[in-house]
Design a protein around this nucleic acid. Structure first.
Length: 760
DNA sequence: GATTTACGCCTTTTT
DNA sequence: GGCGTAAATC
């Protein structure tokens, strides 16, 4: 096969690029993966490098797998060696399983996923005993992760961050690291950090690996973070053959530490870089590309490129304003039905900003018996029962893994209660040793009440039995033995409905299959566990499914014939927490760009002013997303009529705020069952809007339970804080935030619907 | 120590 | 409105 024949000139240039650094700026649908796979094949066929000296790095297992397949196809079947195509994280695990002893760790370390991390932090928070700090495990973790991703060790945390909790966080961060170390465990961030560390501290290792990997290719370079960047620097120190492909317009992982500057200043970091732009799109229609392009042009942080295509103009996009979240789902489902009737082989995706939006779509699609798959809500390896079984494996092979031990010590219930567990953890903490060691000690010289001691001894004996067999039994047999011994099925049947127990057992069987496949591949238990920790739901995504539901983030890298972009409302998308800072807003906009460019043929956009977040009451009108406004209206059917009032770009901000305030008041304080009518009008001025709303309000005021509107300047009474004056009142997503100055306790920020304020 | 009930908090995105 | 944790009860 001629590797170059099917490529356009720019793609060919990239594939044929010789030595030295190269940056390929590849727009959506421009054949990014194609360039990487063809380049790998090209290097091998032209004997520039032996397969094993090539490393390609991606972000997801899925894209790594896809790439592997495509390279194999290009190269033909009989090969003695394969290029290493892997994710950053699994590459690091591989490296560390070989070299981590240089850093004083043991090779049999466990990997803590987010759930494990949370358990650990929760425990530390409890010991820490500063409830007034009011830190959630999530918050703590995200700060720790932020620090790790920016190479800030616990010792210098406080000098880098001057927040009221910096001191607490620093201490929590320190303890967290100590505990990880004691548990012989690493978290996701550590995988990268320690890989960097071992290559930095041991120059001979750096020389060895950077010599070995003669050519390194990186996909989705715009999503790399600082440690990943450093890793690449180390690995390319010898040959400098770093070939990266990315699209700054698709950088959507800042929250996870991705640094868009990595791609923006690539040619400064690697002098002599050759830059190649891939601007021809092979995926979408002209109209879809124009919509996407017009939106993303509002960003300033970009290198700038214009996608073009030889494809047809295609349909215009369709925008629909629904009367409720449920109606939105119904409308979408009906459209899907129609599309599938005409085109049975189409792939369709419904994309949304946040996972909880999937619910209505799932409900309605089920009701209409349209088959679908959801990506990302609960990952397979994240399921409770699967994690339980894996925790048993972990503790057998790494007895120091405290989180795994605590997870299963009383699951299923075996008479080891919270007091006993507390004693164990307390002692482990004092002596700075793993809990399993304390357990061993306690069973030798019992210090607890007879019943608890017996339970502990039984547990210990069980562990010993498994450990004795761990090297002779296969993974499947070991898992089966455990399953029998602990009577897991019985526990499920007792605790759950028959159906639920069945589902969970089915998942365990699925796990057994995975274990036996791993066995045939000849993997060690650690390789099996590593795969489980590093896998995500996306990896199991079935590309043959006709209808897929997923978040915009999960959709990156995928393509569909038809895309539904749902929940296009201010506060939802762009998300409330990303609306205040310019760079966050730009990331939201890129997310929108990613969503639109997933579509091959047709784009649908939906929103509703009447999405109710939860429960009844406090229903609040939402405004259409600013991204809708940014789209070229001539290419969006239904856009003009959807927006109930109009505001122009230049005057928008101030006016938008006032319109919002009026709407919020109207919808929140009168218990009108909000009808579509409310936004049918198109008032030209604020005054018109207000008088219309007053009319509505007059009509509804007889109805029970209407509360007075709160406005800044008003005096209010709070049950705890006493009397105060409202300093400001503004919208934050689906909530309204009040800043109130209380005479007794000073200034507080409260969420209006929770605050139960009484107007004075 | 286990089970039931009450309460509070939620909803950003993931290797 | 639903899930998970904390308190209350067996």
């Amino acid at each position: 096969m001629d590797l170059l024949a099917s490529l356009n000139p720019q793609q060919r240039q990239a594939v044929e690029h010789g030595i030295g650094p190269a940056l390929v700026l590849a727009g959506a649908g421009s054949g990014k993966t194609r360039v990487i796979t063809h380049r790998i094949a090209h290097l091998i066929k032209n004997a520039a490098a032996r397969p094993e000296n090539i490393l390609a790095v991606t972000f997801t297992n899925k894209s790594a797998g896809e790439m592997r397949e495509r390279v194999q196809k290009l190269l033909g079947p009989h090969r003695t060696a394969e290029p290493l195509i892997s994710t950053f994280h699994s590459f690091c695990v591989r490296l560390l399983r070989r070299e981590i002893e240089h850093l004083g760790y043991r090779r049999d370390f466990s990997i803590y996923d987010t759930d494990d991390q949370k358990r650990l932090v929760k425990q530390i928070l409890q010991e820490f005993g500063r409830p007034e700090a009011e830190l959630t495990p999530r918050e703590v973790l995200s700060r720790i992760s932020y620090a790790k991703n920016h190479n800030i060790p616990p010792e210098s945390y406080i000098t880098r961050f001057d927040s009221p909790f910096a001191e607490d966080i620093q201490e929590l961060y320190r303890r967290y690291n100590v505990r990880l170390r004691q548990s012989n465990s690493l978290d996701f961030d550590d995988l990268l950090l320690l890989a960097v560390q071992v290559l930095t501290r041991k120059p001979e290792l750096r020389d060895y690996y950077s010599d070995w990997y003669r050519y390194i290719l990186v996909d989705e370079y715009q999503d790399t973070n600082r440690p990943q960047y450093e890793l690449l620097c180390l690995l390319t120190s010898k040959h400098r053959n770093l070939f990266v492909v990315g699209d700054e317009d698709q950088s959507i992982y800042k929250f996870r530490g991705a640094d868009i500057q990595n791609i923006l200043r690539f040619e400064k970091d690697f002098p002599g870089t050759r830059i190649i732009r891939l601007e021809q799109n092979y995926r979408s229609t002209q109209n879809i590309l124009r919509v996407a392009g017009t939106v993303v042009e509002n960003n300033t942080e970009r290198k700038g490129k214009t996608l073009w295509t030889e494809n047809v103009n295609g349909d215009v996009a369709t925008c629909h304003r629904a009367q409720s979240a449920r109606d939105e789902a119904i409308w979408v489902a009906h459209e899907i039905e129609e599309i599938l009737e005409e085109n049975r082989d189409y792939h369709i995706a419904v994309l949304y900003r946040t996972n909880f939006l999937s619910r209505n779509f799932e409900d309605v699609l089920t009701e209409l018996s349209i088959p679908y798959t959801v990506v990302g809500s609960v990952a397979f390896f994240g399921r409770m029962e699967v994690k339980d079984m894996l925790a048993y494996l972990r503790i057998i092979f790494n007895p120091e893994d405290d989180v795994a031990l605590l997870r299963i010590i009383n699951t299923p219930a075996r008479g080891i209660g919270s007091t006993t567990i507390d004693t164990l953890t307390q002692m482990a903490l004092e002596k700075m040793v793993p809990i399993s060691q304390i357990l061993r000690q306690m069973t030798k010289e019992p210090q607890l009440a007879g019943r608890s001691s017996k339970a502990l001894i039984r547990f210990e004996e069980m562990l010993d039995r498994w450990m004795a067999k761990r090297d002779t039994l296969s993974k499947v047999d070991l898992l089966n033995t455990i399953l029998e011994d602990i009577k897991y099925r019985e526990m499920l049947e007792k605790e759950e409905s028959a159906q639920e127990a069945e589902n969970r057992m089915a998942n365990i069987e699925e796990l057994m299959r995975a274990a036996s496949e791993s066995e045939t591949r000849g993997e060690t238990v650690f390789e099996f566990l590593d795969r489980a920790s590093l896998s995500s739901e996306l990896d199991h995504f079935d590309p043959n499914a006709r209808v897929a539901l997923m978040t915009l983030h999960s959709a990156k890298g995928l393509e569909f014939d038809v895309i539904f972009l749902a929940g296009l409302e201010e506060g939802l998308f762009p998300h409330a927490q990303s609306m205040n800072r310019k760079e966050d807003l730009e990331e939201e906009r890129r997310l929108c760009y990613v969503g639109i460019t997933r579509a091959r043929r047709k784009l649908f956009l939906t929103w509703t002013p009447f999405r109710r977040s939860f429960g009844t009451g406090s229903g609040m009108a939402s405004l259409p997303s600013r991204f809708l406004e940014e789209m070229p209206s001539e290419l969006i059917e239904g856009l003009d009529t959807t927006i109930g009032y109009t505001y122009t770009h230049s005057e928008s901000h101030r006016r938008r705020q006032r319109v919002e305030e009026e709407l919020d008041n109207a919808f929140e304080y009168r218990e009108i069952s909000v009808s579509e009518q409310a936004l049918e009008i198109e008032p030209k001025t604020i005054a018109e809007l207000r008088s219309y709303l007053q009319k509505l309000q007059g009509a509804g005021s007889q109805s029970a339970g209407h509360r007075p509107m709160l406005k800044s300047g008003m005096r209010v009474r709070h049950a705890q804080f006493g009397d105060g004056i409202i300093l400001s009142r503004e919208r934050a997503g689906n909530d309204i935030k009040l800043v109130i100055s209380f005479s007794r306790v000073g200034r507080k920020t409260l969420v209006e619907k929770y605050a139960k304020l009484q107007a004075l």
